[in-house]
Structures are given as structure tokens and as C-alpha cells.
Lab assay of single mutants.
Amino acid sequence: DWEDIVRFLRKLFELGEEVVIGDWHNHHREEIKRLIEWLEKHF
């Protein structure tokens, strides 16, 4: 279910905002944000 995936990604992203998950999070933050925005537009 796409909504569950979007919710999971958003939760992960919000957690990442508070607890910076090292370089991985910083590197992928923009991609995650773009992916969430893309999914919201399409689903």
C-alpha cells in the first residue's frame, strides 16, 4: 500500500530531522524529500 510507504518515509524523514542519521541522512535527505513529494503527487 503506497500510503503506508509514504507514511513510513515521512516518519523516517521526520525522525531524521531530530536525530541526524550521520552522513547517510544528510546525503539522502533531499532525495527522500523529493521522493515523498513525488509520491504525494501521484498517489
Rank of each mutant, 00 (worst) to 15 (best):
L39D: 00
D4L: 14
I21A: 10
R34G: 03
L35I: 04
L35Q: 00
D4Q: 11
K41Q: 05
E18I: 12
E3F: 11
W24S: 08
I5G: 00
K11H: 05
L35W: 05
R7C: 05
W38T: 02
G22M: 04
K11E: 07
E30Y: 03
R29N: 06
E40V: 15
D4F: 14
G16Y: 15
V6E: 04
D4V: 13
G22T: 07
V6C: 02
E30H: 08
L35M: 12
E14T: 03
G16I: 15
E3K: 09
D23G: 10
E3P: 04
E40P: 01
D1T: 05
L9G: 00
G16N: 07
K33P: 01
E14S: 05
W2N: 01
L15A: 03
L39M: 02
E14M: 12
N26S: 11
D1R: 08
L12F: 06
R34M: 14
L15C: 13
I36R: 01
W38A: 05
H28W: 15
E31S: 09
K33T: 08
F8E: 04
H25D: 09
H27L: 11
I21V: 14
I32L: 07
L12G: 00
W24V: 08
H27G: 05
D4R: 11
E37V: 05
H25V: 09
W2Q: 01
H28K: 05
V19P: 06
D4E: 06
D1F: 13
G22H: 07
W2L: 02
K41R: 14
G22K: 06
L15H: 09
L9C: 02
E31D: 10
L39F: 07
I5R: 00
H42C: 06
F8R: 02
F8K: 02
E30S: 03
K33H: 04
W2C: 09
N26I: 11
R34S: 10
L39G: 01
L35K: 00
E18K: 14
G16C: 15
L9P: 00
I21L: 10
H28R: 05
E17N: 13
E18R: 08
F13H: 02
W2P: 01
F43H: 03
I36A: 02
I32F: 12
R7Q: 07
R29Y: 13
E31T: 12
E3G: 09
V20R: 03
F43R: 03
L35D: 00
R29D: 04
H42F: 13
V6T: 04
D1W: 15
F43N: 02
I21T: 09
L15N: 03
E17V: 14
K33F: 07
K33Q: 07
G16H: 13
I21W: 13
E31P: 03
D1V: 11
D4P: 12
D23W: 09
E14A: 10
L39V: 08
L9V: 05
L12H: 02
K11Y: 14
I36E: 01
N26G: 06
F8V: 04
L9F: 07
W2T: 01
E37G: 06
E18T: 08
R10Q: 14
R34Q: 13
N26C: 15
K33Y: 07
W2V: 02
E18W: 13
R7Y: 05
V6Y: 12
E30N: 04
L15S: 04
E3W: 13
W2S: 01
E40H: 10
H42E: 07
I32A: 02
G16S: 11
G16R: 06
E18N: 12
E30I: 06
G22F: 02
N26L: 04
I32V: 06
H27R: 04
W38Y: 04
F13N: 01
